[in-house]
Amino acid sequence: MPDTAPAAAGITSADPGPPRPAQGGVASSRPRLPSAHVVLTCLAVLALALFLVPLVGLVARTPLTRIPELIVSPAVVQATRLSVVTSLAALAISTVLGVPLAWFFARRDVPFANLLRAIAVLPMVLPPVVGGVALLLAFGRRGLLGGPLEQVTGVRLPFTTAGAVMAATFVAMPFLVVTVEAGLRQADQRLEDAASTLGASRWTIYRRITLPQIAPSLGAGMALCWARALGEFGATITFAGNFPGRTQTMPLAVYLLLESDAQAAYVLSLLLLAISVAVLVLLRGRYLSP
C-alpha cells in the first residue's frame, strides 16, 4: 500500500516541516488530527479480523488427521445426506416458484407492488426462529392450514422431512427472487420486442431470449438460495424439530454434536465452510470483484 506510507509519516512527525504541495501549507498551522485514511484503515483491518480469526480458529482446531474417519461416521453421513436432499429440494421449489414471482414483480404492473415485495423478501431479515414459529402456526397440526391439510390429504408437515424442506424454502427463496428480479429488470426488453416481430410466441421469447439474458442472475440466485437453504437452522429446528435422519440437517447436527462429539461437529463445520467457499468462488464475478 504505497499511498498509506506518506500519510502515516505525516502524523508521526511533530514538526510541520516544509509545506507539502498537496496541503498547500494551510493545514500545517492547525492541530494535527489523525489522517482519515489511517483511522479508516485501522477500522477496516479490525473488521477483517472479526471475519478471519474465527475461520482460522475453525481450521486450526479441526483434527485434520481424523477427518477421513470422522467424515464417514454415521452421524455426519446421515446429516450430510439429509442436508443435500432437503437443500436441493428447497432449491428446486424455490426455482419453480421464485422465478415466476420475480417475473411477476419485474414485468407485471402489480398493485401494491412494494408491499408484496416486502412480504416476499421479509424472510431475508426476519429472525429464522420467528419464521419457524410462523410456519408452525400456519401449517402445524393445530395451525391455520395444517389441521385441514392433514385431515383432507393425510400430509403432515411439522416435524417431517417435508417440513424441513418447507422451512429451508421459506428462508432461502427470497434470495433467488431478488436476484432474478434484478436480472429481469436489467434484461433488454426491446430484444423481446424484436423476437415478437419475428413471430415468436411469449413462451418462445422467454425460453430463447429472456432466459439466456438472465442466466447469470439465475445462476447467482440459485447459488445464494442453495447456500442459504443448506445453512438453515432456526426455522428448521422450530418447525421441523431435530430428528436424526428425518429433520436433523448439518447445522442442527453441528449444534448437537458439540455436546457429544465436538470433533465431529468441527468436521461438519469445516465441510459447510468448504461448501460456502465453493459457492463464493462460483459467484466470484458477482461478489469478489468490485
Binding site: A194, A195, T197
Partner: peptide, 17 residues
C-alpha cells in the same frame, strides 16, 4: 399481437441476439 402481424422490422440499433 406483434407476433401475428407478419411485419418484419429492422431496428435502428439492430437488436441482434
Amino acid at each position: 399481437a406483434a407476433e401475428e402481424r407478419d411485419v418484419g422490422v429492422v431496428f435502428q440499433d439492430y437488436l441482434l441476439f
